[in-house]
C-alpha cells in the first residue's frame, strides 16, 4: 500500500511541476514571498535584540537556530499541503469534494496532496543550509547525529502541524463557508513563530502538551542546541503518530456528515 501511495505522490509531484511551469513569473514570486516571510521573522528578532543582548539566556545566535527550524518546517508545509488545505473549504462549498470521495484512494490523502509545489524545494535547500550554518556557529561543530535529529524533527513537526491544520480545515464540511477558519489557524500558528520561553508558564505548557505547536520549531531548537534532552525527540515522534492517527479518525467521522452540493 505504501508503494502505491508513493507512486501516486510522485505522479502528483510531476503533474504539479508541469502545471507550475505554466506561470513561471508566479513561481519566482512565490519563492520570493517566502523569503520575505523569512525576512519579516528575522527582522522581528533583530529589532528586539537591538535593545537587549539576551532574553531568558537566549542570544541572537540561538534564535537563528530556532528560526532555521521554523523555516525548514514551513518549507515542507509549502511543498506538500499548504495550498491544498487552504482550498479545502472551497472544495467543500463548490462540491469538488465529491470527485475526491469517488476516487479509489484515501480521500484525506488526495485532498491533502492533490496539488504540490516542488518549486519550494529550493527554499528547503537554502533553509536547511542556513540552519546547519547557524548550528555550526552556535555549537562550534556539527555532528551527523545532530543533522539526523534535525531531519527527524522536520518530519515530526510537519506531522503535528499537518494534523492540526487538517482538522481545523475539515470542519468546513459542517460549517459550509469557512474561509476564516484558515485565519483561526494562522492565529494559532502565530504562537509557534516565537520560542516558547517568551510565553508565561501556563501558555508554554499548553503549547507543549495540549496544543503542541511548540513542537513545530521551539522544541526542535531546544533539543538540537542541547538545552533539552534527546528524549524530547521520542516524545515528538509519539505525538506525530498520535496526531496523524487522530486526524484520520476525525476525517472519517466528519466526512459522514458531508452532504454533496454539486449533484
Amino acid at each position: 500500500m505504501v508503494t502505491h501511495y508513493w507512486r501516486i505522490l510522485v505522479t502528483l509531484m510531476k503533474t504539479s511541476f508541469i502545471a507550475e511551469l505554466e506561470f513561471r513569473a508566479n513561481i519566482a514570486l512565490k519563492i520570493f514571498n517566502d523569503f520575505i516571510w523569512y525576512f519579516v521573522q528575522i527582522a522581528v528578532f533583530e529589532v528586539l535584540y537591538s535593545h537587549t543582548s539576551q532574553i531568558s539566556g537566549w542570544n541572537i545566535g540561538k534564535i537563528k537556530v530556532f528560526l532555521g527550524c521554523l523555516f525548514l518546517a514551513d518549507t515542507i508545509n509549502m511543498i506538500f499541503y499548504h495550498e491544498n488545505l487552504e482550498q479545502l473549504s472551497e472544495r467543500v462549498r463548490k462540491g469538488d469534494l465529491d470527485l475526491m470521495l469517488a476516487k479509489p484512494v484515501s480521500s484525506q490523502f488526495m485532498l491533502s496532496f492533490y496539488r504540490l509545489h516542488p518549486s519550494y524545494i529550493l527554499n528547503f535547500i537554502i533553509c536547511f543550509t542556513w540552519l546547519l550554518y547557524s548550528l555550526y556557529q552556535e555549537l562550534g561543530s556539527l555532528e551527523l547525529f545532530t543533522i539526523f535529529k534535525v531531519l527527524l524533527f522536520v518530519f515530526c513537526s510537519n506531522a503535528i502541524m499537518y494534523s492540526l491544520r487538517f482538522m481545523v480545515a475539515s470542519t468546513a464540511i459542517v460549517m459550509g463557508r469557512a474561509e476564516n477558519l484558515a485565519q483561526l489557524w494562522y492565529s494559532l500558528f502565530r504562537m509557534s513563530l516565537r520560542p516558547d520561553f517568551v510565553y508565561p508558564p501556563w501558555l508554554r505548557y499548553t503549547l507543549l502538551f495540549v496544543l503542541p505547536l511548540g513542537f513545530i520549531a521551539s522544541v526542535p531548537a531546544h533539543v538540537v542546541l542541547g538545552v533539552r534532552s534527546d528524549y524530547w525527540l521520542l516524545g515528538a515522534l509519539g505525538l506525530a503518530f498520535v496526531f496523524l492517527a487522530f486526524s484520520s479518525l476525525f476525517w472519517q467521522w466528519i466526512v459522514k456528515r458531508y452532504s454533496s452540493v454539486s449533484s
Binding site: 528586539l48 535593545h51 537587549t52 532574553i55 531568558s56 460549517m175 459550509g176 463557508r177 469557512a178 474561509e179 476564516n180 477558519l181 485565519q183 483561526l184 494562522y186 492565529s187 494559532l188 502565530r190 504562537m191 516565537r194 520561553f197 517568551v198 510565553y199 508565561p200 501558555l203
Partner: peptide
Amino acid sequence: FNSFVDWCLSPLISTAVEMAMWWTMFQAM
C-alpha cells in the same frame, strides 16, 4: 460562525498571545 471567527475569535487569540508575550518579554529582559 465564519464571521464570528473573523471578527472576534481569531483576533482575540492573537491579542492574548501578543499580550502574554510582551508581559514575559519585559520580565525576561
